[in-house]
């Protein structure tokens, strides 16, 4: 068995644009849940708005990409307000239910036939990222070695994505270390106590929701740029739960947790898939089972990761960077 191939594939996925996209979404979710205590199960909705806002501006309206990106991020702020204003006064479980429903309703609307003229419906939208790749100052050609060979444009999108990951991590760190962040973390612990001390907790929760949503929107923008297109099948509800898995693996309420968690998620996912491919290719398995495995690597990989995540929750609930003793200081 070619372990170097498996490891190579895994590492490529762990460093790739998908990992960066997940890292951004997880950084936003970390602000929502890790710091503000908001149970957001609709993170993919923010990603979708960032991606579609950009794509519609460019592909449907023929506008500039540099107008489309702020528009997509603006939609994320609007979505945060639309979600938060009616529900953030209520108990947190109502908010959680609303987020998952709202994100999926939006996806169904986007792919519905009446919306086809605007969103491309089930076909999505294409060729949106030309002005982004025009900015690529890297020389043409291919770079790297072996598994880690990238085209100039691949390298460019990865470079931008990981720089954004660093900037957003720094932004959240700065906010959380400020008095604003102290109030936000206090709300996570006990909202009534914070209200009794003269803070407008609903406003803080809305702000945290909007900022984390815009960061997830950036993840969607990078996704659209990376594929130079958007499709509603990329924004199914499971994406939100993969981002949750990444965040929890990395460690809640930490700065590097969401980033390392996202890299680890893609490393493991691709590693397991690759392992199954290699393994079934060895010819050790009876034909029936090999045939079953062939083509099902993705599903099996997800199932194994689910089992792994359950084990992680039982044995290592704080994640890679979380502090174990925090878990015992429940509120």
């Amino acid at each position: 068995m070619e372990f170097d191939v498996i490891l190579g594939n895994a590492a490529r996925a762990g460093l790739g644009p998908q990992a960066a996209i997940f890292a951004l979404a997880a950084i936003g979710l970390n602000l929502h849940f890790g710091y503000a205590g908001l149970l957001n199960f609709g993170q993919v909705g923010f990603m979708m708005l960032g991606a579609y806002g950009t794509a519609i501006t460019v592909a449907t309206w023929g506008g500039s990409l540099w107008l489309g990106i702020p528009l997509g991020l603006g939609l994320c702020v609007a979505f945060a307000l639309a979600l938060g204003v009616p529900t953030l006064r209520l108990r947190s479980d109502y908010f959680a239910i609303t987020t998952i429903a709202a994100a999926e309703i939006m996806r169904l609307l986007i792919r519905s036939s009446p919306a086809t003229e605007l969103t491309g419906g089930p076909f999505g939208l294409q060729t949106i990222a030309n002005s982004f790749y025009d900015l690529n100052f890297l020389p043409d050609g291919r770079f790297g070695w072996g598994t880690f060979t990238y085209s100039s444009n691949q390298l460019w999108v990865m470079l931008v994505a990981w720089i954004l990951v660093c900037l957003c991590s720094a932004l959240v760190l700065g906010l959380i270390r400020s008095p604003w962040g102290r109030v936000v973390r206090a709300i996570r612990e006990d909202e009534d106590a914070v209200r009794s001390l003269g803070k407008n907790t609903v406003a803080y929760k809305l702000q945290a929701l909007a900022i984390g949503g815009v960061i997830a929107g950036l993840a969607g923008v990078i996704d659209a740029l990376q594929q130079s297109g958007v499709g509603s099948e990329n924004f199914e509800p499971q994406v939100t739960f993969f981002v949750w898995a990444a965040l929890i693996m990395g460690g809640l309420a930490t700065t590097v947790g969401p980033v390392v968690g996202a890299m680890l998620f893609w490393f493991l996912r691709e590693g397991v898939e690759s392992f199954i491919r290699e393994f079934s290719g060895l010819g050790w398995l009876p034909d029936g089972l090999a045939g079953f495995l062939d083509g099902a690597e993705g599903a099996i990989s997800i199932a194994l990761m689910g089992i792994g995540l359950i084990a992680l929750m039982a044995l290592w609930p704080q994640g890679v960077f979380g502090r174990r003793r925090d878990l015992h200081l429940g509120t």
Partner: peptide, 24 residues
């Protein structure tokens, strides 16, 4: 209602009304 995962000092600071840095 103590704010468990904040330090005691941070708990106290949340009580202050004059901190303008609490504005986003």
């Amino acid at each position: 209602k103590s704010l468990s995962r904040l330090t005691v000092l941070e708990n106290m600071a949340v009580g202050a009304q004059t901190q303008r840095g609490e504005r986003l």
